[in-house]
Design a protein around this nucleic acid. Structure first.
Lengths: 161, 161
DNA sequence: GAAATCTTGACTATTTTAGTTGGGAAAGTA
DNA sequence: TACTTTCCCAACTAAAATAGTCAAGATTTC
């Protein structure tokens, strides 16, 4: 599990799709403009998102992308692992036949840690983000200005990690 | 917060130091051989670990490195952030003056997510790892062979995340 | 003084990230 | 049918990060 701008781009784009749900297919050009992401780069990301059935596509004029399932059923972890290669890190992947067990142990620790983070991210859905976002936008308008409320507080603590 | 082999190398090396605590300073050459990490690369990593006072150094023959404080007081998160540059990702870092709030919101979400992971890793000390490791090694010897018990179960769920 | 060890800085190779370019293929509309 | 809009796809590129090498020096012990 990596947390890079690549994954953030994907989540941002998916969130954009979710926010415009009900307006028919959304073109990548729209997302590119709204979110400030390169159109060609979005195409690469959506190619992978589509292969994972996270989005559905419609070609031709009036076409575009829409969510592959409900926002409530799409989790951040899915989105990230769809665009990030499955970083098959390190020599003894899976097998426990390293020279000394020390190294293998650390390897396991790492992948387990990674799994826990994945579990955590897999408990946050796009719908959750939209809800928080709505909360924040309301708060922004109410207090009018640079509100800095931490999203951590709002996100709370999903089960698992 | 990134989870790369760089951070794992650092944690592995620190764990090695912790495991040989009480044997006097440990040379990087020893760690390099035991853990299969390039000596010169270790030098780079320890340069940073030393600047953060996570390790103490002794020069000359018989010299080497030792933990800068007790294993119980050194946390994985510290080690990782010591060797990983403070990835100052993305345009609107801190300031909320982006074009549209959408992007900034995602940015905040990301850094907060990152902070939560950091909090989680900051609740696991080297001592914790040693304890788990001891448990595992005993289990390995008792069952003699390729035991595959998940470390996740053993690690449990530190408070916070 | 010699050897062991840390300390530092500059250099290099490989991989990943973040794109660009250029061509398609499908679908709607005139 | 011609044309436009959109998705689709593969190859290429530039910049950065990762992982590591190399060379020189500073301390300390023997």
């Amino acid at each position: 599990m990596k947390l890079t701008t690549k994954g953030r781009y994907a989540v941002t784009a998916m969130l954009d799709l979710a926010l415009h749900y009900g307006e028919g297919p959304i073109t990548l050009a729209d997302i590119a403009q709204r979110q400030g992401i390169s159109l060609s780069y979005l195409e690469q990301l959506f190619s992978r998102l589509r292969r994972q059935s996270l989005v559905a596509s419609v070609r031709g004029p009036g076409g575009g992308y829409s969510l592959g399932k409900e926002a409530r059923e799409i989790f951040i972890g899915e989105v990230i692992s769809a665009v990030d290669e499955n970083m098959d890190t390190t020599k003894c992947h899976g097998a426990h036949n390293c020279q000394n067990n020390e190294r293998c142990l650390t390897h396991d620790l790492w992948s387990d840690l990674s799994n826990q983070i994945y579990t955590y991210l897999n408990n946050i859905s796009l719908q959750d983000l939209m809800d928080r976002k709505a909360v924040r936008e309301v708060a922004d308008r109410q207090e009018h200005g640079d509100v800095d409320a931490s999203l951590v507080d709002q996100l709370g603590t999903p089960a698992g990690v």
